[in-house]
Write a protein that binds this DNA or RNA. Structure first.
Lengths: 105, 105
DNA sequence: TGAATATATGAACAGGTATTCATATAATAA
DNA sequence: TTATTATATGAATACCTGTTCATATATTCA
């Protein structure tokens, strides 16, 4: 009965989840991280290979890989001194694909 | 034949597109904008209504709505002094849904 | 026209974060 | 063990951006 509909609750998402969502998209919202994800979308790569591909400092890549790890977007496999990174699952790809759909329409 | 596979070109996305992608996800990577998008997901709302719902300054909402407009994520309809905002299309919802899938798994 | 209301926007400030350097940790080989 | 290579990380810096205030623009009504 209020003049402004402040209690609209149709089918909307819990506030707390929305903050988590923003945090997730924040991870996708950095060009270095997106380029890393694209690079390891089809085959795993070691940290040094990623750095070489993107022509960036190894420490920069490691810092960003940590962010991706913390958000469960990548998985790792150790092989001797090297650590190989790959996308954690296919729906990381799906998120990227959805973004592409918007851009390329 | 190089020791490091720098010329990997499987099925990957053009570099320039990747930067655009990051910029797009950057828009989703802010809690205020995500909350706005969630709010107008099912029905259009005027700026003042959005501000009231989120309990934030009108200018803050306007600034963020501009970002959403510039990225073609919302559409507007003028009705007298008020301007109603709605999500531009359903695949904005899909992007959000993909993010939810990742969080809620 | 002028007053009232709704929205937009420029400028400034504060908080956050991506990058880099230097260094630490970890694994391998000799 | 020591040397070498690969990766991780703490600290510092510089840049970016979300919010706010003040004000401008736009629409309606009297």
């Amino acid at each position: 009965m209020s003049d402004i509909n402040v209690t609209n609750n149709d089918c909307q998402i819990d506030e707390e989840i929305l903050f988590e969502l923003a945090d997730l998209f924040k991870v996708f919202g950095d060009s270095t991280r997106i380029r890393i994800m694209n690079l390891i979308a089809d085959n795993e790569l070691a940290v040094s290979q990623i750095a070489a591909n993107l022509n960036m400092e190894q420490s920069t890549i490691s810092q960003q890989l940590r962010v991706l790890r913390q958000n469960k977007l990548v998985r790792i496999r150790r092989e001797g001194k090297q650590i190989f990174y790959a996308l954690n699952d296919d729906h990381v790809k799906k998120i990227i694909q959805m973004g592409l759909d918007h851009i390329l329409e």
